[in-house]
Structure formats: structure tokens, C-alpha cells
Design a protein around this nucleic acid. Sequence first.
DNA 1: ACAACGCTTCGACTACCATCGAACCGTGAT
DNA 2: ATCACGGTTCGATGGTAGTCGAAGCGTTGT
Lengths: 226, 226
Amino acid sequence: MKEGPDLSRVAALVGDPARANMLSALMGGTALTASELALEAGVSLPTASSHLAKLCDGGLVRVAAQGRHRYFALAGTQVALMIEAISGVAEAVGPQRTRPGPRDRAMREARVCYDHLAGERGVALFDHLVARGLLVEDAERLTPSDAGRRWFEALDIDVGALKQARRPMCRACLDWSVRRSHLSGSLGAAMLDTITTRGWARRDKHSRAVVFTPTGRRAFDKLLAD
Amino acid sequence: MKEGPDLSRVAALVGDPARANMLSALMGGTALTASELALEAGVSLPTASSHLAKLCDGGLVRVAAQGRHRYFALAGTQVALMIEAISGVAEAVGPQRTRPGPRDRAMREARVCYDHLAGERGVALFDHLVARGLLVEDAERLTPSDAGRRWFEALDIDVGALKQARRPMCRACLDWSVRRSHLSGSLGAAMLDTITTRGWARRDKHSRAVVFTPTGRRAFDKLLAD
DNA sequence: ACAACGCTTCGACTACCATCGAACCGTGAT
DNA sequence: ATCACGGTTCGATGGTAGTCGAAGCGTTGT
């Protein structure tokens, strides 16, 4: 009867539209305040507060008090992974939604997945790294090769420094739009950071979409050209 | 506000305890009848029927009418993947549950994930295959090498035949107990089939656990010994 | 001190939905 | 034909959880 972890408890947390919207917003990776999330979810502030309390209590969301602000963020990569997985089946089974408009197209091309790059460009990056042997899968985990290390250093990403962090550096994260893997982990996060700080792309203010500038697109394509 | 696929719709489906129990039961991979699922979920038959209608309607479950029986099964691997992901965070955030008893220990050691082997033994198998170069990750997907093909054929698994199927042959599926990947896809299913038909292990009747016989354990270990 | 602001708590209302008993509908067996 | 069986539909009931306005609390700035 009751076996294993309690699925329904955590699923029910995501099962409310307001909370789902908040979690979607938090998939952007940046921490948000209660009022921002209330706006995002389309509910009043008290309602949002109640929901956030539940999300915290349920362990899906972490809160950091800072002065008179309280910043909410996803509790961890595992939660982000789950949200993406749910999005995957929602996408697959829910063609009754509005058909893919220009907005969805942007999401497909490139979007933020928690703190790294997903979508077609994310997958393209991942494929390139693996195909060129810059990323290799040894026994149990994905690690950059020596050539890969040099490749990243050319982008001012210090692989050695990231290695220190307790967080897994590389992960393959399954994509819901394209059905393939993209680069996750701290290395994925650093990669997205590079892309934005170099002005190749900016994060859309009201969605998780990542919109590339024309020059940024060229630079990115050139990076993968060989 | 409303962007991307509708998370809450599908999450809410999993959010009910009765439905979650049914889905857990279906993670065993075998199709079950409505009455079996009612028993599993601990609800009356009408209630179960109502839930199953919703699950079908929501696209999480497929039904196959066969005489006066109606067999229910998960709609696909993507759904199974999602369930595992949710289990993952439920496991991570829910230490308020009963502490890991012998039953949970069995689940950790080996269990069925939809139709393939998960848990420590599933991960051990996957690690061995990758470490020995029997499975290699080329540009975008995991494929058995020539040596791997021979390795599988020694177990009477015809890799060529599996390749024909429309279903992806190999997939890396993230594990909730151990935090690593195990072999999914039709090859993973064939592997589990081999293990059970050879009598190395049998599937527990009332859970997803896979219990190895002493001789089966030896045979399996020997398989991975090198 | 006082006021503005961000957020939480309280209380009351509402709506939805899970639940079950009983009746109903097919299919398969006698 | 008739009965047993698996399953669904219907109707009524009850509980639970989302919702918001108003009030309360702590922090920051003037």
C-alpha cells in the first residue's frame, strides 16, 4: 500500500496552479521576493505567502531573509530536475494548450533551466562538447578532458576552481523540448554566466527564455563551428 | 503569467494519494486491472475507476480493453521518468517517513523502474558497461560498442533486433536512491528480462523490489567481475 | 519617534473534489 | 436465457484547501 517515498505530498505541492507558476518562475534561477512571486502567480500577497510557507515546509523552496526582504529560491538542482521532468510530460500530453507561438519558440531555442542553458542551443553545446571529446564520461561521471579544460579556459572559465565546489560540476540534464541532454552542474552554470556577461544573450525578464543577440548568435555558432 | 506547458495539471494528477499509489504500482511495469489498482491504492472500486478515468484523460495512463478486463499501464517512459524524479525529491525532503526498514533496503538494492533494473545493482551494471567500454556515448546517444554487442549476445540478447524497435534502445535513467544513472530503454528491459528468466532474481509481488537469489547474486556479480 | 514598506497571521467564505453506496451496463460462463 | 463478474455512472455527503480583506509585526528610512 504505502511504499517508498511519499509521491503525493510533493506532487500535490506542484499541483496547485499558483504554486506551479511560482516554481516555474523560480526555474529562472534567480531568487525572488514574495511580492514578485505573488505577481508572477497572479494571486494576492497573503495567498502567495501561504503558498510559499507550504513550499518551504515541503522542502521544495529555500528562503533567505535579508533585511526586510525575503528571497525565495528552489531548494536544489534535484527539485529543478523534477520540474523539468514534469514539464516534459505536460508538454507531451498537453497539446490542448495554445499552439507554439513565438514565445514558445524562443523557449525552445534557448532557455534557463535553474541556472544553466537548456533548449536547442543548450543541447547543441552539449553535443559539441561530447563529440569533440572535450567532455568524457568515465566510470560514473562526466568530466572535462585536458582539451576540454583548455577549451573552457579560453572562455575564462576556471575548471579547477569549479572542481573544488561540493556541487557536482557536470551533469547531463534531460531536455523537455528537444528530447536530449544538455550541460548542467556548476560548469553549465558558468557557461551560461559567460554567455550573458559577454552580452551574447540576455535573459527575458518575464519568462525563462534566453534571447541571443545577432552578434551573440554568431559568436556562439563560431564557438561550436569546430 | 502562464508560460510553457501546464505543470499543475499533471502534477495535480499525481498529487492525490490514491492516484500516486496507483502510479507507483504501475511503475512495476506490468499492466494491472482496475480492481487490482483499487486494492493497491486502498480505495473502493468506484473511486478507483474515477481516478483511472482522470489519469487516462490526463495522458499519464493508457488502457487496453481485453474481454471483460481492462488493463491499465503507464503511458510511456517519459511518465515513468517523471515519477522517478518526483520520488527523488520526495526521498530527499521527506526524512519524516518511517526510517529505512528491510523493505526499503530491498528497494534500494534492486527494484524495477517501469521495465528495467534500478537501484544499486542497476547502477553497478551501468557503471560496469560504461567503464569497460561496452557502452559508449557518441555525439548524442548511448550505444553499445562491438565488444558490448558481443557481451550482450553472450547473454542471448540480440542487440541488432532491439535496434529495429522504434523505442530508444539505451537511455541513462537517473536513480533516486543512489544518485547515479542506470540503464534504461529496450536494452535495459531486455537485461531485466534476462535476469528474471534465468532465475537470478524474482520480482516481489507487492512492491517494485527485485529480490536476488543467492546463486543469482553470485552469477550477477561474476558478470560484473570482469 | 513616526511613517512607509514587506510580509505574515487570522478569520470567514467558497468551491472543488475525493469518497462511497446503489444502480447500471457489458462480457463471459452455465 | 440466466447468472456471475468486472467495471462505470450517478447522486449525495463531507472534508479540505485555496482565496482574500483586515489586522498585526518587524525592519528600514526620515
